[in-house]
């Protein structure tokens, strides 16, 4: 009879966290940016059918990275929770905070229970108010931690590099077009196989973009931006990819500006 190995609780949790983090790091990033009229979500997602960004309720939206089946279940649960509350009480009684709390409890319980594998997902829950100051963005990690984000936030694959790019350029109260151009440029600023950060132009058809727009007349403020609208907002990008400013920490381009990374295999969204 073999003696079971002793694993300390610290090690157990660390292993589970490493497992979840590895799964999340495989996917591409999602950027969320607060702009003048609401909250903008941008992700690189070649699939037209499998969304990373979705509507939950009137003023609440959801974005996720990681395993599709897991965050899709969480999204559906969120829609059910919101619709149930809105139907039983009133539309105004559905809040992003309550939803973020439900997600945190769910992810936290699954993470620390021995029986289930931890979810390999990270989520954003955003809610807009009547004023920009009332907008809220919550970031939820695989272990159920909640963080309140301000201005911009990134999760997924090269989150650190993309967030670093945004940190240097983000300005509060930007117009939609400016915020979108910044977010797309930031998503294109990813390390190549050598770990060197490079700027590439992401094709419009590979972008999934949605906004919570408080200027909309209807109660449901969530809108997906169509490729045509994206073309119009982004304009001519080939010439407008921001050059790395002098003195920036990124390593110089060793390949002599060979251009964008083409023909990358599509990743599960």
């Amino acid at each position: 009879m073999s003696t079971p190995f002793y694993v300390s609780p610290e090690q157990l949790m660390k292993d589970r966290a490493d497992f979840a983090r590895k799964g999340i790091a495989r996917g591409r990033s999602v950027v969320v940016i607060q702009y003048a009229d609401g909250v903008l979500f941008v992700s690189e997602n070649p699939s037209q059918a499998l969304h990373k960004v979705s509507e939950i309720y009137d003023r609440i939206a959801f974005a996720a990275v990681g395993r599709y089946n897991e965050f899709e279940n969480l999204r559906i649960a969120g829609v059910r929770l919101a619709d149930m509350r809105g139907y039983a009480y009133d539309r105004r009684d559905v809040s992003g905070r309550a939803l973020a709390n439900a997600y945190a409890q769910t992810l936290g319980t699954i993470f620390s229970s021995g029986g289930e594998k931890p979810y390999e997902v990270e989520l954003f829950v955003a809610e807009i108010g009547d004023e920009a100051a009332e907008d809220q963005v919550y970031r939820l990690t695989y272990d159920g931690q909640v963080a309140d984000e301000h201005g911009y936030a990134v999760m997924g694959g090269a989150a650190d590099v993309v967030a670093g790019y945004l940190k240097e350029r983000y300005a509060e109260g930007a117009e939609l077009g400016d915020a979108l151009r910044l977010a797309v440029a930031a998503l294109g600023h990813t390390p190549d196989e050598k770990g060197v950060a490079r700027d590439r132009v992401i094709a419009t058809r590979d972008l999934e973009v949605a906004v919570l727009d408080r200027t909309r007349q209807r109660p449901r403020k969530f809108v997906r931006l169509s490729p045509a609208r994206l073309e119009q907002l982004l304009g001519d990008r080939a010439s407008s990819v921001p050059e790395p400013a002098a003195g920036e920490t990124t390593t110089p381009d060793l390949l002599g500006g060979a251009g964008e990374v083409e023909g990358e295999p599509p990743v599960a969204p």
Partner: peptide
């Protein structure tokens, strides 16, 4: 009824896209 903090397992089950069926 209206669930507490943690999402009940039935909420996380895929399949039903009708709200009245879910309510039932």
């Amino acid at each position: 009824m209206i669930p507490g903090p943690r999402l009940p397992a039935s909420y996380l089950q895929p399949g039903v896209s009708s709200f009245s069926d879910f309510l039932a």
